[in-house]
Amino acid sequence: MGLHAALAVHPASGHGAAARIADTVAARLRPCVDRLDVLVANTVEESRALMRTSHDAGLDVLIVLGGDGAAHQGVQFCADHDVALGLVPSGTGNDFARALGSPPDAPSAVTALVTALENGARRRIDLGRTGDTWFATVLCSGFDASVNARANRLRWPSGPHRYDVAILAELAAFRPSPLTLTADGTTLDLDATLVAIGNTPFYGGGVPICPAATPDDGLFDVTVIGAATRLQLLRLLPGLRSGGHVTHPAVRTLRARELTLTGPGWPAYADGESQGTAPFTVTCVPDALTVVA
């Protein structure tokens, strides 16, 4: 039996960029697969239903055309059904594609993906798990989760600068909060600003919050910013884009397989999607996903 692929198109990704290039991407993919289903969905429920239909017909590879939100939904399906995942980034952040080394522009990413499909290039990577949800990039809690929520509400500016605007807006209401963090059985009680649990380095459109994280070592890289003042946070911000923040005295880093966070009012976002509030437990699951790369 030949290679059966599906192209999941999320039309709203990248302010409509995915919809505009969907036909071109499909035309590039068809010659290197035996069957290509094009799945166009405007809701999560519709997308999952279409994926299940392709899976029932023998799906081998799900290719997601969209941003991190679309990739997050693809991760849920592929990890649960042992289907390989490919990415064509066309969103505003594209942090998962960036972590996998995908070219940043969609035409180059399609070319790289076609080559990988033709060569059978695949790799297994770890995923994070919280409750019944998988995540591929970073689960953030605290200040950065509030920034993520605000950035999702903004309609301007587009791209990574949304997060810069959201950071400045959230600083006005900012204050550290008490937190209990248990990492592989070791418990820390502290006042903290944020916790970022990284399976991969990036969130927020290319911010390397956990710069040393790799998705194939069976462990999370964790960045904790303690009880920083507004002025300290402002001084930290320039280093976030380079990863230099990890040397700041208010920052500590650690590595762990399982973490539990408990604290009043600590929101959580994973892959840019809301995961409710603490308490929650996060586990690194080795080799949970096959990616075409």
Rank of each mutant, 00 (worst) to 15 (best):
F135N: 06
L188E: 15
L168Q: 12
C140S: 15
G159K: 06
L190M: 14
G185M: 05
S158I: 01
L181G: 08
D132T: 13
N148K: 01
A149P: 02
F143D: 08
A136Q: 04
R153T: 15
N152G: 06
L154M: 13
A192S: 12
W134G: 02
D189A: 15
T180L: 03
L154Q: 12
D191Y: 03
V138W: 10
L179A: 14
R175A: 13
L179R: 05
T182W: 03
T130N: 00
T187N: 01
R155D: 07
T133H: 15
R155C: 00
T133E: 15
T130C: 13
C140Q: 14
R153I: 00
H161G: 03
L171W: 10
A192Y: 10
D184P: 04
A169E: 14
I167C: 07
G185W: 07
L139Y: 03
L190D: 12
F174P: 11
Y163E: 03
T180G: 05
V147I: 13
L168R: 14
T187Y: 00
P160Y: 13
T130R: 02
R162S: 07
D189M: 07
P157S: 09
L190P: 02
V138D: 07
W156E: 07
F135A: 03
F135T: 03
T187G: 04
T130D: 02
L154Y: 08
A169S: 09
S177G: 04
D144G: 06
N148D: 08
N152L: 04
G159M: 05
T137K: 00
S141L: 04
A169N: 04
W156S: 09
S141T: 13
L171H: 07
L179P: 08
A173Q: 13
S146N: 14
F135P: 05
C140F: 00
T186G: 00
S177N: 01
Y163A: 04
A166M: 15
T180S: 09
L139W: 02
I167Y: 05
E170F: 12
Y163C: 01
V147F: 08
D164W: 05
T130P: 02
T180W: 00
G142P: 10
P178E: 07
T137G: 14
D144W: 07
L171E: 05
R153N: 10
E170W: 12
D144S: 11
A136T: 01
T137S: 15
F174A: 11
G159V: 07
T180C: 08
R150K: 13
G131A: 11
D164V: 11
W134M: 06
L139P: 00
S158K: 14
